[in-house]
Design a binder for these strands. Structure first.
Length: 806
DNA sequence: AGCTAAAATGTTTTT
DNA sequence: CATTTTAGCT
């Protein structure tokens, strides 16, 4: 046999052996190092694995697999040695293969863009599994979301397009209030044109890289759009003069930077030889443009996505980005990953049943080798309170019967409001849970106030934040004085803070107010000075103390409110302390960026043993053994405003597909006869998506057949709603605090004292009660206990903190 | 200026 | 239903 051929073929065998835990398509993707690559990856097909392994491969071996260069010095002995290497352990083999590496890329030349910071962290941690923690490979790699990566670029080069290094990011509510200010200034009535719709039109325009002028010229005779363009122009001016970027600007301005400044573009294009983008089906036009710019020189770009999982159209995502990827890059290699490793066959068939009703798909045939698995449970309940209780019952029973733990369960819903009823039920049943998304910790008033102080300290021209805190706590600078100062400031071309410093020069400001303004400026100066020589958490503590904010909170008369706010501020200090510890080079400005860009899901800890509740959107990319899908009703999911529009129904259907494909083993679908939303009772039909699941895969039951918890407790049911007294609701972790300590699930496991029927017991949350029944289940005992004030409960021996009383 | 209480109003999904 | 806005009062 030809020596060269044998050499190459054994080399490839070695690589195939090394990647033997991947399937052939996945390996193909890992080896496709150079040139444009499109991976169409179905749900659960191991795309994150491929992304990570491919990056590691590039750093370690470069294009070694494809290279047909045989070293001149190679001999038959080498081939013999290579054949022996086939029996090496994985780690040894990995190291052995480095000897074939061809033009490996330095880690700093790799850019990985993911959908969440968590996924980016995942890449880094998996790379560190291969190269070792804190190795150069891990630290040098650039991985992050579009937003965090762009912020990095803007911090480095933003000055070229007029942004100061410590620009701040304004969130949706900040930008809303700025738009509202602009509308007032232009005397546009907010009743005829809502701030929300203006904000969304501007945001969509920015997604498409449209400037105010572009929007105006596109408007034609459309009066509304013309008005919005006018507002957009004013809004953008104010953002820029205050050194602020909104979420859309972060992308759009980066594109502008790279378009207008060839030098910056060259630097970045030369640096990033390998670019990978995950969740490509949910990118917008600006993000497409950005990837084109960044990969413009080497064109080594890999994008991964699934057209069936495109669920962010409302945010400007264009599915065509992935459908037409090969039109933007010639010689695109396309690889389809169609084997699903996550779900049972039943679940996969159900998902396929749903998604097959969509038109205009690229079309994939997902398959699996796994077993049929359990049928999908579909259950109708009378109302949302019972829906929540049903979920709790299923969880309690499965835990003992099937040896599952709380963290194996996820409740996924369409809208955040749906979480409330379920939370109440979980709290009552003493099941540990955590809620992701919804109102965030950093949206709490007191947290936002303190963070606003930090913004003003960091970026003195941030007038939005200044307005928020200038009179909180009260210091005699009321709305009116502030308005006057703002007007003067814009007339004179100063920032408001600067003007306030010299307030006494202006006769329009009363002497009392100008004194207060000056004092305020001194306060801010002192704090800025303090911040320059102290850590973030020390600065925050100082802000709370010296602004009088802490005293203000301490004087709140209601005990619960006072304590909650105080503890939120303590939490803020603690979290900042964590940041100071973790960050390489902690700065106030980076801290503020992190606060703006980190989401709840990023902090989701899969090791915490608690049931997790989140929206289906947030659950994208995650997986759980058991998934509950409550509220599968027409009007809820699909939402009632989408029902008339076939295109939007398709998006909803993709969302349903995402929901179903999150589950590994089991799905419980529920819907209710009557649902209360915003004080109105709705009577919804079962969701059309449920009926798209082949009937033979499902088992349907109605409430009447599920008598277990309706028996023996008319008094409990007659209250209708389940009422949870906030003081005794079991809340394992404040729902606002993604960072806070893990749920207190480590309840006294040694507390396995056994109870007999009729025993009087005390529960830490439910108070006094009597044991009605006890059932052995696995290694545990399930008790039914009637409590004096809370009615009948099912409790698990090991988890319920029950104590016997005489 | 600043507080309280009544009235209005909103209905996805998120970086 | 729950939050935000506003009117009216001190």
């Amino acid at each position: 046999m030809d020596f060269e051929k044998e050499y190459l073929s054994v080399k490839r065998k070695l690589f195939d052996k090394y990647y033997s835990d991947l399937n052939s398509k996945q390996r193909e993707a890992v080896y496709a190092v150079n040139g444009p690559l499109l991976i169409l990856a179905g749900a659960g097909s191991g795309k994150t694995t491929v992304l990570v392994r491919r990056i590691a491969h590039i750093i370690r071996y470069g294009d070694a697999y494809n290279s047909d260069i045989v070293p001149e010095y190679a001999t038959g002995k080498d081939v013999e040695e290579m054949k022996k290497a086939l029996s090496l352990s994985k780690i040894e083999l990995g190291n052995y293969l480095t000897k074939f590496s061809v033009d490996p890329a330095p880690a700093w030349s790799v850019l990985g863009i993911t959908f969440t910071n968590k996924a980016a962290g995942e890449i880094k941690s998996r790379i560190s599994d291969i190269f070792g923690e804190d190795s150069e490979e891990v630290t040098a790699i650039t991985a992050g979301t579009f937003h965090s990566v762009c912020c990095r670029f803007l911090r480095m080069y933003g000055e070229k397009i007029g942004y100061d290094k410590n620009f701040s990011i304004c969130d949706t509510s900040d930008s809303k209030s700025l738009i509202s200010d602009c509308m007032n200034l232009l005397s546009i009535d907010e009743k005829s044109l809502s701030v929300k719709s203006v904000q969304s039109i501007i945001s969509r325009a920015k997604d498409k890289l449209q400037t105010p002028e572009d929007l105006l010229s596109e408007a034609g005779q459309d009066y509304k759009i013309k008005k919005v363009a006018e507002i957009y122009s004013a809004y953008q001016n104010r953002l820029e003069s205050q050194n602020l970027l909104d979420f859309d600007d972060i992308i759009m301005q980066t594109v502008r930077l790279l378009t207008e400044h060839e030098d910056v573009r060259d630097i970045l294009q030369n640096r990033y030889r390998y670019v990978s983008v995950d969740e490509y089906q949910d990118t917008n036009f600006a993000q497409l443009k950005l990837t084109l710019l960044l990969s413009g020189k080497y064109k080594n770009i890999m994008v991964v996505g699934d057209d069936d999982q495109s669920i962010y159209k409302f945010r400007g995502a264009v599915i065509e980005n992935i459908l037409n990827f090969d039109k933007n890059y010639s010689n695109t290699k396309i690889i389809r990953l169609e084997e699903n490793y996550r779900s049972t066959k039943t679940i996969l068939d159900a998902a396929n049943g749903i998604i097959s009703h969509n038109k205009g798909r690229l079309g994939k045939t997902l398959w699996t080798q796994s077993e049929q698995g359990e049928l999908i449970s579909i259950k109708k309940l009378p109302d949302q309170g019972l829906e929540g209780r049903y979920i709790c019952n299923v969880i309690s029973e499965s835990i003992v019967k099937d040896d599952l733990s709380f963290k194996d369960f996820a409740v996924l819903y369409r809208m955040n409001v749906q979480s409330r009823a379920i939370e109440q039920a979980l709290a009552k049943a003493a099941i540990p849970y955590r809620v992701l998304g919804g109102p965030r910790f950093f949206d709490r008033m007191e947290v936002k106030d303190i963070v606003s102080y930090l913004h003003v300290i960091n970026n003195p021209v941030d007038d939005i934040r200044l307005k928020r805190i200038v009179n909180t706590p009260r210091r005699g600078i009321g709305n009116k004085s502030f308005e006057v100062a703002s007007a003067l400031a814009s007339a004179e071309g100063y920032s408001v803070l600067e003007l306030m410093r010299n307030a006494k020069r202006y006769s329009a400001i009363s002497p009392v107010a100008s004194k207060a303004m000056q004092d305020f400026c001194f306060l801010i100066d002192a704090l800025r000075d303090y911040a320059s020589s102290h850590t973030t958490s020390e600065t925050i503590a100082k802000v709370i103390e010296s602004t009088g904010y802490g005293d203000m909170i301490g004087e709140i008369p209601e005990k619960t409110e006072r304590e909650e706010r105080t503890s939120n501020l303590e939490e803020l200090i603690n979290m900042a302390g964590q940041y100071d510890e973790d960050a390489e080079d902690p700065t106030l400005s980076e801290y503020l960026e992190e606060v703006a860009l980190v989401s709840d899901v990023d902090k989701y800890d899969e090791n915490a043993d608690a049931v997790v509740l989140m929206t289906i959107h947030s659950a994208k990319g995650l997986e759980f053994p058991v998934v509950f899908l409550p509220g599968m009703e027409e009007g809820v999911f699909p939402g009632y405003q989408t029902i008339m529009n076939p295109e939007e129904i398709e998006e909803e259907r993709r969302l349903a597909y995402v929901a179903v494909t999150r589950a590994k083993k089991r799905i419980y679908i529920t819907h209710v006869g009557s649902r209360m939303i915003n004080g109105k009772t709705q009577y919804n039909q079962i969701s059309c998506f449920v009926n798209e699941i082949p009937a033979e895969l499902t088992v349907r039951t109605e409430e009447e057949q599920y008598g277990a918890f309706t028996r023996n407790r008319p008094a409990f049911i007659s209250t209708g709603r389940s009422i949870v007294n906030p003081s005794d609701a079991y809340n394992p972790t404040p729902r606002y605090s993604p960072f806070s300590s893990q749920p207190k699930v480590k309840t006294s496991a040694q507390n396995t004292e056994e109870f007999k029927i009729g025993d009087n017991v005390v529960h830490s949350m439910f108070g006094k009660g009597v044991v009605l029944s006890s059932k052995r289940m696995g290694g545990d005992v399930l008790y039914e206990v009637v409590f004096e004030e809370h009615g009948l409960k099912k409790l698990m021996g090991t988890y319920a903190k029950l104590k016997k009383v005489k």
